[in-house]
């Protein structure tokens, strides 16, 4: 399974990379803004994407909608500091597979990643 990580924070990208290493996912892209994310997505067509919302260039929720148009079966985990109910609901309504509020540690990501990997198998 192919994984892509999208976040403008290098610490968050490194943390997701580290926390997800045990699942043997093939990391096909690391993007720090929405524009780069869409370019990489079109080239690599990952199965799972972790996606921030507040990023330079293109907002994460716009990126989410575009990714779903390109690959409707994509599993996008939106990970955002904007963890209010309306933002989470908006992400889910736009087609996110799950929503994780920042701050998050390994345990929170594990719960979501395990479920999504099981669904894809």
């Amino acid at each position: 399974m192919k994984l892509m990580i999208v976040d403008d924070s290098v610490i968050i990208r490194k943390a997701i990379q580290k926390y997800s290493a045990k699942y043997n996912l093939e990391l096909v892209g690391l993007a720090s803004d929405g524009k780069m994310a869409l370019e990489l997505f079109s080239q690599t067509l990952p199965d799972i994407v972790t996606l921030d919302i507040t990023m330079p260039e293109v907002n994460g929720l716009v990126v989410l909608e575009t990714m779903i148009k390109i690959k409707p079966e994509i599993k996008v985990i939106v990970i955002s500091a904007q963890s209010d109910k309306s933002t989470a609901l908006e992400a889910l309504e736009k087609g996110a597979a799950d929503f994780i509020g920042k701050p998050f540690g390994e345990e929170k990501l594990d719960i979501v990643l395990q479920r999504i990997i099981e669904e894809l198998q």
Partner: peptide, 29 residues
């Protein structure tokens, strides 16, 4: 890493405040 960590802290604290202060509490990068 240090610069990024500082940015991530303020981003997370401000972003989390939306839960109580409302979705109209808009934050920048």
């Amino acid at each position: 890493d240090l610069v990024d960590m500082a940015g991530e802290i303020v981003n997370t604290i401000a972003g989390n405040a939306r839960r109580e202060l409302g979705a109209d509490f808009n934050i920048s990068v």
